[in-house]
Amino acid sequence: MNKIWWKILSFILLVYTIVCGFLLEVPRLDILNETIRNLYFHVCMWFGMMILFIISFIYSVKYLRGFNYRNDIFARHFAAVGCLFGILGYLTGIIWVKVTWVTDQGQSLGSVLKEPKLIGAAIALLIYGAYFVLRGSFTDIDKRARISAVYNIFAFAMLFPSIWIIPRLVGSLHPGAPGSDSGNPALDKNDMDSTMRMVFYPAVIGWTLLGVWIATLKIRLSIISEKNIFEIKKMN
């Protein structure tokens, strides 16, 4: 966790993202125009959010297997940084939507908000909001860790089918949704050429690593500040 190489890797990847993301050629498409470059930033927020939530889920499972309090701290902070990424994804999405969906195609904001992607993201954020409310309602730390791990696992296991199901129930403006041409609801592969892909995947990794870094900082801080708890646990 304290190794430095992946932090440097994250930095290099993000520098690469910004330099190549702005300077390389992108496919020339109507309506999207230059905003297609938002893919390197906005979409990466969602990918990063999902990856961080997956990590949080894994630590919740680990907590229930051994009741090690460290794993609970890990799960909590990864979920928190995941939420941060999700909120950033929402904010950047609002800016992007304004120029691509709302004006040019005569869509009202109300119909845009019923986007399956947005519903999925909203469910994810609501679930983790509920997770933190649940955490806040306990005073006993062991109980808090245990019950919130149970909720984290349950909600996460329900989240994935819903992300898969909802796009098939609600019509979509989002590129790549069923109903538009390709089958993958996450990305329209046709809009991305190979140069874009060469920037996009490193960008996802770079942003995710940055998220992991921030999360580990918060984890280390709370391990220090809750040092007393660990010492008591060792004594038992």
């Binding site: 409310v133 819903s162 199901i165």
Partner: peptide
């Protein structure tokens, strides 16, 4: 969590939505 029905709604609604 020794909470009222409000917490159930908060926890359950996002999960039941799909």
């Amino acid at each position: 969590a020794q909470q009222n029905a409000a917490l159930i709604a908060i926890l359950g609604f996002p999960v039941i939505l799909p």
